[in-house]
Design a protein around this nucleic acid. Sequence first.
DNA 1: CAAAGACGAGAACGATCGTTCTCGCTTGCG
DNA 2: CGCAAGCGAGAACGATCGTTCTCGTCTTTG
Lengths: 215, 215
Amino acid sequence: MPPTTRNRTTAQTEQIRENVLIAADRLYYSRGIHAVGMDALRDESGVSLKRLYQLFPSKENLVEAVLHRRRGIWNSLVETAVATGSDTPRDQLLAVYDVLARWFDEDDFRGCVFINTFGELGGTAPHIAMLIREHKASFQARLAELVTKAGAPAALAHQLAILAEGAQTTAAIAGTNDAAHHARAAATTLIDTALATNRPATSHHNDGVDPPVTT
Amino acid sequence: MPPTTRNRTTAQTEQIRENVLIAADRLYYSRGIHAVGMDALRDESGVSLKRLYQLFPSKENLVEAVLHRRRGIWNSLVETAVATGSDTPRDQLLAVYDVLARWFDEDDFRGCVFINTFGELGGTAPHIAMLIREHKASFQARLAELVTKAGAPAALAHQLAILAEGAQTTAAIAGTNDAAHHARAAATTLIDTALATNRPATSHHNDGVDPPVTT
DNA sequence: CAAAGACGAGAACGATCGTTCTCGCTTGCG
DNA sequence: CGCAAGCGAGAACGATCGTTCTCGTCTTTG
């Protein structure tokens, strides 16, 4: 029951807003941002232009909201994978690449929204470029936490982040999901090598952990 | 001396064409493709619209020519690095990441043209998407040649390619060139691990090649 | 019922897009 | 010199962009 006004309930507004974000995400992701006009978004979302502009004061604002929402989705995917994947930091790190593998298999996969948007708008929209930079930095920071917990040197986190980024663009352009498995295999090698060579012992006596065979 | 007409020499035409491609590359690379109109390209190149359209029948054709030219430049960079870098396949592979390191240091670096263009146009321009896919595939094939020559399993080439792609996007978004060094360190680990475990001997007795210390 | 405010459909606006055309001017040749 | 062809500068074209406005309809409240 609406409180005392004939306005829409805030819950209804939030629902419409979410629907708009979903439609905008789908359109921007599949066709690029410049290629999708507000009219196309109106048709896709079923929300009038008037309401679109009262929900988001400008297209740039809408793009930022889409990126913000994607960031939340990505973080949730990573955290659930880390939480449910396994208990050792090593397997938690590897679980990230399993997330990638499942994502690449979706039939509308077309790469990383943030990378794509950076290429299209990074040179002309500094605010959006900064938002993208922060997102990538926070992902790297999360990897760094897990790497530290695993007892590996910090450089490993950067290497694992590069693998994740490269897997996304490679899978998008090639149109296959092989990149996820290759990235996972590479990550396994890098992690285990880092763990093996980081032991304080004088030499590498290899206590049970073999250098992995890349598949 | 012009042959028998008062038209421009073909050499002059080629020079103008190259100037246009250079100007278009600079504008598209720094601002994105949709954001650069033909008028802006006219101002930047000093070539009239009429001539622009007689050199390139459409903007899409021009974009393809820009990508084609970039592909030649990239291949030259890689081949000279491979040729002059060193003689062992291992160091030739690593030389690729030195190319990246020098590239990332350029002050107008903004990522890989092909990745950026794929994000912006890959969903709506299938011909351009295919061109980008072919370029990346040929780079991977070149890596595969070197990997085979090094005696490592073919999967290593995919891993090294993913590292190169990831380094480019990471460096572009972060705005630093650290990614090149991290990618090179990771590549060193992956190569040496692959070479060590690929020896036909029953176990890894590590004949002189230690697992590298990541830096 | 009456009145008022919110809403959707879509026209309208100025800007800019890719592309083509007009119009003087230059230039090389008989 | 006269003429024809090619050229640059820029106007022009239709389309589409992001954004705003109009107007008729509907809902809700007194």
